[in-house]
Structure formats: C-alpha cells, structure tokens
C-alpha cells in the first residue's frame, strides 16, 4: 500500500512536470533581470514595467479582452438556448444531427474552422476586423458552452418548473426565476471557459482578423518570430494568469453547482457523494 502510494506520487509528479515545466520556466524567466532570455541575472520586475509601456502589446491585450468578453457573452446565450433545445425538446426530428453539429467543432482542426470562416466572411463581403473575430470565436466556443450547460440541464428536476407554473408563474418568468438561478453556476462556468478559449486562440483569430484588430496571442507570436524578449515572457505570464483564474473559477462553479444539486437531492445521495469521494481518495 505504502510503496504503491510512493510510486503513484512519483508518476503524478513526472506527469505534472511534463505538462507544466515549460510554463514554470517561462514564468521564472519573466522575472529575470538579464536581457538574455536563457541566462539568470537576478530577480526583477522590469519586464512587467516595460510591458505596460509597450503600446502595441497593450493595445493587442485590450483587443483580446474585448473580443473574449463579446464572444463569450454571445456563446453563453446561444449555448444556453441550444442546450435547452437539446435537453427539453426530447425527440424532435433531427435531434441527433443537431447534437452532432453542435459537438463537431470540439474536434474539428482549428485550421479548417479558421479557413472555413475566412472563406465565409470573404464570400459575404464582410469587412474583417474585431467583429469577424468575435463571430469566429463565438462559433469556436459555442459548443463548449453548450456541453457544460446541457450537462447541468440534464440533471435539472423539471418538477421545479412545473411547481412554479402550477403556482401561477408563466413559462418565461419561470425560466428567469427558477431555471436560470439554478443553472447559473453552469452558465458562469460556460462563460469563463469561452472567455479563456477566446483569449487563448491564435489560429482562428489569425485567419479571420483584419487590420487594426490584432489580438494578444497574434502580437506575441509575431514578436517571437523576431526573437524572444523577456518582455514577451512577462506578457505570456500575465496571459497565463488570466487563463488560470478563468479556468479555476469555471471549475469551482461547476463543482459548486454539482454540490448544490446533491444536497438538494437529500441525505441518501449525500451518502453516495461521500462514497464517491472515498473512492476517489483511495
């Protein structure tokens, strides 16, 4: 038992190291006092200072934030509607096709999605810029949002909505007073995930953007081609911090939603949860 645990710990550390060592190195070097990226010259935050003075980089960051906020909002609203359609309308014609269509972008190569969107924008004569990226990112993140919200809705007790309507609450109001508050954690998680995915994306943004709408990953990528500066390390670290916080919150929201559900289901299921936790721990 004990030796098994030690073995597992080693494997876990190796795995985590493999995943995160490059990022850790990058973060450490963003605090490097030396100009040379590969030589440690003492601790300093000068590159962060330089970063905030770098106008093109800051502008790109601002663009990225705008795009992420807009596209995540759109994806969350559309994703909620799509999830409702998938969960509530039971066996409508073409349901599995619709499900497939929603999920396909999850596994579609980004290059293809980007290219397809570019062709679409060109063929409809859309001026490429911030809004085309917003639309493209909405397409990209919609499926993730749908999956998260759908999972929550699938376990949602419809009797709650029926009870509300039974007490005289019209359907639309029922959605806003009963359904939405109860699935809010999932909706929040969907928004944050969509937000971080949009912030992260390079490929699709490169395909669909136009003049004056350079996103942060694009800016970083083009600068790196001219040589890696510690400033870029700093920019990446800030980006990583954003993404980590977003994903962390998203995870916590999903979890708290699940806990709430289990509690509401009563003591019996609380035991089940405890069992499940015990299994996970052992």
């Amino acid at each position: 038992m004990h030796r098994g645990n030690a073995f597992r710990t080693v494997v876990l550390l190796l795995g985590l190291g493999f995943l995160y060592l490059p990022i850790v190195v990058l973060v450490i070097y963003s605090f490097n006092a030396s100009r040379l990226v590969t030589v440690w010259g003492g601790f300093s935050i000068q590159w962060y200072v330089a970063l905030f003075a770098n106008a093109p980089l800051m502008e790109a960051a601002w663009t990225s934030l705008k795009i992420a906020t807009l596209s995540a909002s759109l994806a969350t609203v559309l994703g909620t509607l799509a999830a409702l359609a998938l969960v509530r309308h039971g066996r409508f014609g073409g349901r599995s096709l619709f499900t497939g269509l929603i999920y396909a972008p999850l596994v579609m190569p980004e290059v293809i999605v980007g290219l397809a969107l570019l062709l679409l924008f060109v063929s409809v004569g859309a001026d490429r810029g911030l809004w085309t990226v917003v639309v493209a990112h909405t397409t990209l993140t919609l499926c993730f949002a749908t999956v998260i919200i759908q999972a929550r809705l699938a376990s949602f007790d419809r009797a709650l909505e029926e009870a509300a309507m039974d007490l005289g609450c019209p359907p639309a109001k029922t959605f806003f007073t009963i359904t939405l508050p109860l699935i809010a954690p999932a909706v929040g998680a969907a928004f944050l995930l969509a937000f971080t995915l949009s912030l992260d994306d390079l490929v699709i943004a490169s395909f669909t953007t136009g003049p004056g709408a350079t996103t942060l990953p694009m800016r970083i990528y083009s600068q790196v081609r001219l040589g890696v500066t510690p400033e870029i390390n700093a920019a990446c670290t800030v980006l990583i911090a954003f993404v980590a916080v977003g994903l962390g919150l998203s995870f916590i929201l999903t979890r708290s939603g699940a806990r709430h559900r289990d509690e509401a289901a009563g003591e019996a299921s609380a035991d089940a949860v405890a069992e499940r936790h015990a299994e996970v721990r052992s």
Partner: peptide, 17 residues
C-alpha cells in the same frame, strides 16, 4: 398549467432549492 385554478403538491415535493 399556470392559468388553471388548481394547485398541486408534488410527490417529490419539488421545493425551490
């Protein structure tokens, strides 16, 4: 349902959590 002068108590209670 919301316009019927009938109120139901659900077997599963269906309390708003």
């Amino acid at each position: 349902p919301h316009l019927r002068p009938v109120n139901m108590m659900f077997q599963s209670y269906a309390l708003f959590p």
